[in-house]
């Protein structure tokens, strides 16, 4: 890849570098899973420890609890990296879901309720590869993630703001509305518009608009 860098325009090169960075983090998780690679863990810890703690603090946890929980999350990463599938999720996504779930666990004393992929009731359909399955290749996932990053970067600021606050701050749409001094309905509609424009920019087919639905 670096050999091609010279002929790639600066904007695209930047995107490519980001993807390489993400790839490096994925490979680090794989290495931890394969053979408890300590150097790889250092890369993950150095990159994510502060970010995960920042997520917990943003969600209103006090310093000591956030530190303690962040360390638990890092321990979970160390122990469970074997289950990380680089064709299924970016490293940051996998770590976000662990942090989110561990926080829920801590707050209410039981696990987040999730879809179980071996459920006999599981209905499969459009965009299966985007839903439950590993994308055709790690490259396909990297492209998908890259498109999502681009779509996020290009989100109108007011939409990006409510999304950011949803993930990194308040508990409810009401909290966010109060902070921004906006009606709750406005917060909700910005979230809807944000998700719609992310999906449009990523060119994900929308089953909602298919003649078979609705």
């Amino acid at each position: 890849m670096p050999a091609h860098a010279a002929v790639i325009p600066a904007s695209q090169r930047n995107r490519l570098l980001n993807e390489l960075g993400r790839d490096e983090l994925s490979q680090a998780l794989v290495a931890i899973g394969d053979n408890r690679d300590e150097a790889a863990f250092s890369i993950i810890y150095t990159h994510f420890a502060g970010r995960v703690k920042s997520f917990l603090l943003g969600k209103g946890m006090e310093e000591n609890t956030a530190e303690e929980l962040m360390q638990e999350i890092m321990l979970i990463i160390w122990r469970r990296a074997e289950s990380y599938d680089p064709g299924k999720a970016a490293a940051s996504t996998w770590i976000f879901t662990i942090a989110r779930n561990r926080r829920i666990d801590h707050l209410r004393g039981n696990s987040r309720i999730e879809v179980e992929l071996d459920d006999a009731m599981l209905e499969r359909g459009l965009n299966d590869n985007l839903v439950d399955e590993t994308l055709e290749s790690e490259t396909a996932l990297a492209q998908h993630t890259g498109k999502m990053y681009e779509a996020m970067d290009n989100l109108p600021p007011e939409q990006k703001q409510v999304m950011h606050l949803s993930y990194f701050r308040g508990q409810s749409h009401g909290d966010i509305a109060e902070w921004l001094g906006l009606p709750v309905g406005t917060v909700k509609s910005r979230i809807r518009l944000a998700l719609q424009s992310i999906r449009t920019n990523m060119q994900i087919g929308d089953a909602d608009s298919s003649p078979f639905e609705n």
Binding site: R22, Y45, F48, A49, G50, R51, V52, K53, S54, F55, L57, G58, A66, E67, M70, A89, A90, A91, S92, T93, W94, I95, F96, T97, A99, R100, T145, M148, Y149, M152, M163, H164, Y167, F168, I198
Partner: peptide, 15 residues
């Protein structure tokens, strides 16, 4: 994955 994006973009707290 949007959650992953925000984790990636967030300012790092000090561990």
């Amino acid at each position: 994955s949007v959650g992953g994006y925000f984790v990636e973009q967030s300012d790092s707290a000090i561990p």
